[in-house]
Simulated assay, not measured.
Amino acid sequence: MAGSSFAYLNARLRARRSQMVPEAFFQQSIGLSFPDFVRALADTIYGPDLVGEALADVDRAVTSHMQRMVGDLPGLVSGNMREAINLLLLQSDLNNLKTILRGKVAGQSPEEIKGKLVSGTLPEVLLNALLQAPDAASMAQVLQLPTHPLAKALRNAATGNPDPLALEVALDRDFYAFSLEKARRLREPALASYFALQVDALNLTTAFKLHTLGAGGAEGYFVPGGSSVNQALFSRVAAGDFGAMEALNATPLAAASSARTLGELERALRRILLEKAAQGGKDTLGAGLALDYIRRKEWEGARIRLLARRAYFNLPAEAVAKEVA
């Protein structure tokens, strides 16, 4: 039954993958003026969702398109298959919460933050309420969903009034503990393996941030669940011992071992995780293809938003070239 249900879903996903924005669009759009960029976007699959010619209209088009092409996936399957797809969208909820928290710390408006959100399981009315909440504690009061794994995590983390990075790590710990256990219980090895690699990537990113901030007590920021980055390596990198990165050469994170700045690291990790997700395309009887499709669409939407901002603010093409590649 599971195999046949995923066979149906995967057939739909293959059809949707064939309609994704071609790579040529991103390369050709990198130097366009904003009006020309909007016209070019209107000729893609995002065209039906693009109403207006402002930057906010581009953001709304991405959000609307993602809701149609990703948000509907759980409704195409049932039972354990639906749980597996919802698990992937739950990660989008995690990313949205962190984006909102970061935006509030940076003093961004709710509209600015909303333009960076992706399609998850939380309804738009609840996301709008979270955007209007003044701080993490208020957000925890808004997210009163007994069955949502991140509701309790946000409530517990916000109570202690931790620093922004510690608050994100607290959310990450709860999310990955829940997701790794559930992926294994659902017998979805592709998802479990991907989540474990994400934990490794997350720990490396956090270690680089701690080094930049000069923060002590690195051990308190480590997230369990990975397979290549242990706490000893994490602590060494956080202390500035980048030579410790050589230990990654024999792991799936080898391509990130030479990174020495946060930007270099994030670009390398993004490639590694996209390639890992792409391996799910071979998972014909599980949620691996859905993993690949969702991550591809999220990356597609992120690139469109980035190019839109480059064009809108008339930034030089080289300012975003590495991020769009």
Rank of each mutant, 00 (worst) to 15 (best):
Ala268Gln: 06
Phe242Ala: 05
Leu180Ser: 00
Arg271Gly: 09
Ala247Thr: 09
Leu13Asn: 07
Asn203Thr: 00
Lys297Ala: 14
Phe34Ala: 03
Ala54Pro: 06
Arg296Ala: 13
Ala24Phe: 12
Asn314Trp: 08
Ala201Gly: 13
Ala239Glu: 13
Thr212Gly: 15
Arg309Cys: 03
Asn80Thr: 11
Ala140Phe: 02
Ala259Ile: 04
Leu233Tyr: 05
Ala259Lys: 05
Ala321Asp: 08
Asp174Phe: 05
Lys114Val: 11
Leu213Gln: 15
Gly160Gln: 11
Ser18Lys: 15
Gln19Asp: 13
Leu150Lys: 00
Leu101Cys: 09
Arg102Glu: 00
Asp292Arg: 12
Gly286Trp: 01
Ala129Asp: 14
Leu41Glu: 00
Leu307Arg: 04
Arg155Phe: 02
Ala177Asp: 07
Val199Ala: 01
Ala54Val: 07
Gly281Phe: 10
Glu264Lys: 01
Phe242Cys: 02
Ala239Phe: 02
Leu262Ala: 11
Ala190Gln: 13
Leu204Gly: 02
Phe178Glu: 03
Ala325Trp: 13
Gly301Asn: 01
Phe195Ser: 06
Phe222Glu: 03
Val324Thr: 11
Arg60Ile: 08
Leu191Ile: 14
Pro110Met: 00
Arg296Ile: 05
Glu168Tyr: 04
Arg14Met: 10
Ile45Cys: 11
Ala157His: 02
Phe208Thr: 02
Ala136Glu: 00
Arg267Ser: 13
Tyr293Gly: 02
Pro22Tyr: 05
Leu88Ser: 01
Ala254Thr: 01
Thr212Asp: 14
Leu143Val: 05
Leu55Tyr: 04
Ser235Ala: 15
Thr205Arg: 15
Leu73Phe: 03
Leu269Asp: 05
Leu76His: 13
Asp43Trp: 11
Leu143Glu: 01
Leu289Gly: 10
Ser92Asp: 08
Ala278Asp: 14
Ala317Met: 08
Glu112Met: 10
Ala133Thr: 06
Gly288Thr: 00
Ala54Phe: 12
Ala7Asn: 12
Leu233Ile: 01
Met81Thr: 13
Gly216Leu: 06
Thr212Val: 11
Leu269Phe: 06
Ile45Gly: 11
Arg17Trp: 10
Pro224Glu: 14
Thr251Trp: 04
Gln19Trp: 10
Phe208Lys: 06
Ala238Pro: 03
Ala256Arg: 04
Glu219Tyr: 10
Ser138Trp: 01
Pro74Ile: 00
Pro134His: 05
Ala129Pro: 04
Leu307Asp: 07
Glu266Asn: 09
Leu87Trp: 04
